[in-house]
Structures are given as structure tokens and as C-alpha cells.
Amino acid sequence: MSKLPIKFRVLQLVNQKKGITNEEILEILKIEYPRDRVVNYKDIEYYLISLKSVGLIDSISVTLTDHNKLVESYKISDYGMNRMKYINNN
């Protein structure tokens, strides 16, 4: 099966597991897209903020680690659920 574009896969992961964190998403993507340099903390954060700003995902909780790193968990919104048809039908 061909791979989804990375931003699509981010939304799919949020849909598959309510409460998934940015760090969990990054770890999964590193395994699935080992040769893609765009799979790094900064770019995945950018995708998550972008998905959140257009209302496809919502933030559930945020914690700050001892290393001053944000760990944010997400859930898909109703609008995001509606857009899943573009991912599931691929």
C-alpha cells in the first residue's frame, strides 16, 4: 500500500487514537517514514498547529516537561471527522 502524505497521516493518527501526543505522533512517523527528513519535531509541530488553526483537531491537554518541552495531546474535531473521507478513501 502506498504511503499517505505525512500531514494526512498526522490527522489519521489523531483520529485513530484520542489523546495521542505530539511526541507519540513523531515516534510513529519516524518508523513509518524513515527516509523523510521532514519528520522532525519542528515540522510535525507546524503540521499540528496548522491542523488545529483550521479546526481539524482540538487540543485536550498540555504539559511542560522538565526539559521545557511541550507535550500536547489531541483529539479529532467534527470537522476533522468529516475530512477523514479524503484519507480513508485513498
Partner: peptide, 17 residues
């Protein structure tokens, strides 16, 4: 350069693409 070139083909296979 930014490591995104594989995304062209992946994106064109989707409806948003």
C-alpha cells in the same frame, strides 16, 4: 533541499491533491 520531494507523488494520489 527541505526533504519534502517524495510528498509530490503521495499528494497527487489524493483527492485534496
Amino acid at each position: 533541499i527541505s526533504g519534502k520531494w517524495r510528498e509530490y507523488a503521495r499528494t497527487l494520489k489524493t483527492r485534496p491533491g
